[in-house]
Write a protein that binds this DNA or RNA. Structure first.
Lengths: 199, 199
DNA sequence: TGTCCATCGGAACGAAACGTTTCGTTGAAT
DNA sequence: ATTCAACGAAACGTTTCGTTCCGATGGACA
């Protein structure tokens, strides 16, 4: 199946990377959407982008690097600010689950987590990204602390870790369609505790 | 590198599977320990077990099936029963993290989760296993409910899900060495809530 | 204007693992 | 003694990997 050079192609042979990188990133996302992580290979991305494999390897040293950049290009999830910690947390999780479900972000992030279990560089990249993300979740918590909705001695990092854990597991076990009532239960338990007489 | 049949081998050619399955399962675990999930291939397991690939494929239809059986053979984690929900949960998580850290179980389970992201049968197997496991965590919660340590209307499933989420994320992000104080914080927040005046 | 030269897409490479098929051997069941 | 299922070994064709060539392209610089 020898491909003949397309005479109508945009720009080749320039000194730097023009925008073929864009085509590669878009192709990577498209492959992930259509074939999932199982079908995500460098070869498939190159075919889809009509790019050469060496071009991909020149810019992204590993599959993990490509996955990470695809994920970082995604639109961010809105962080609600309703004035109520419970509403903020429930809203954030619903926004996040919806975003993960309705865009390719969920598939991309799942793939990145899976890749991190067998690729050291992916694990490192994911750890760095998770740190930044936790700061975002931490915003909700810090705001609530400023409003006095959270006891002062609470460790925001632990709370953010718990919220992120809940989100990760639902992503990894394909339970992004959890009803709002269940999410609200979880948030409510975290806010008020599960022990009796918890106000 | 043609291997000559070992004249001292145990038993071949029987009507059913004798105990070569045992050798394969042990080899699979050894490969996972020594090479990790990245180096875990059917070929590597077959070499290590001095078994033929068809023998493996005859019994385990997929890599996921082999992983799952290796994990199910592992020793179970002790479920504490101290009479205190907080101590039970903290003890369970410490036992689980220690078990995951000091045996191959952690690596095996991580690999299974990763495999489930690209293999449908692995996802199904993992879902079934997670259901059974949640019942175990649920034991702690149900006992506490019987003692009156938990309000009657609390959804034990949601609580168990949250605990499991925390464990999964720490496994997947290589944070099984979390200090007991941090784990205790998390459990305490869940029991008493993070809102002020939570008794 | 003309010569570099980095980058491009494409083709091919060897290595590895995939899942399958074939083969001769083994030993329990009949 | 014969049958027969499972065995280990070897080879198959396929796929993906990451790398190395190649001719073509077009901006940079003299």
């Amino acid at each position: 199946m020898g491909e003949i050079a397309d005479p109508a192609r945009k720009s080749i042979g320039a000194r730097r990377n023009p925008d073929s990188a864009e085509a590669i990133l878009e192709a990577a996302e498209a492959v992930l959407i259509e074939a999932g992580y199982a079908g995500f290979s460098i070869e498939a991305v190159a075919r889809r982008a009509r790019a050469g494999k060496p071009t991909i390897y020149r810019w992204w040293p590993s599959k993990a690097a490509l996955l990470l950049e695809v994920y970082q290009r995604q639109k961010r999830v809105d962080i609600p600010d309703t004035g109520s910690l419970e509403e903020d947390l429930v809203g954030f999780l619903i926004n996040l689950f919806t975003h993960w479900r309705e865009t390719s972000s969920g598939n991309v992030f799942k793939s990145l987590i899976a890749e991190a279990q067998s690729d050291e560089t992916a694990a490192a990249a994911l750890a760095g990204y998770a740190g930044a993300r936790r700061t975002h979740t931490g915003q909700i918590i810090e705001r609530a602390k400023a409003r006095g909705e959270i006891a002062g001695e609470i460790d925001a990092g632990v709370v953010a870790d718990l919220i992120a854990s809940y989100a990760w597991r639902h992503l990894l076990t394909n339970r992004l369609d959890e009803p709002e009532a269940t999410i609200r239960k979880m948030v409510h338990y975290l806010l008020r505790g599960i022990a009796p007489s918890g106000r």
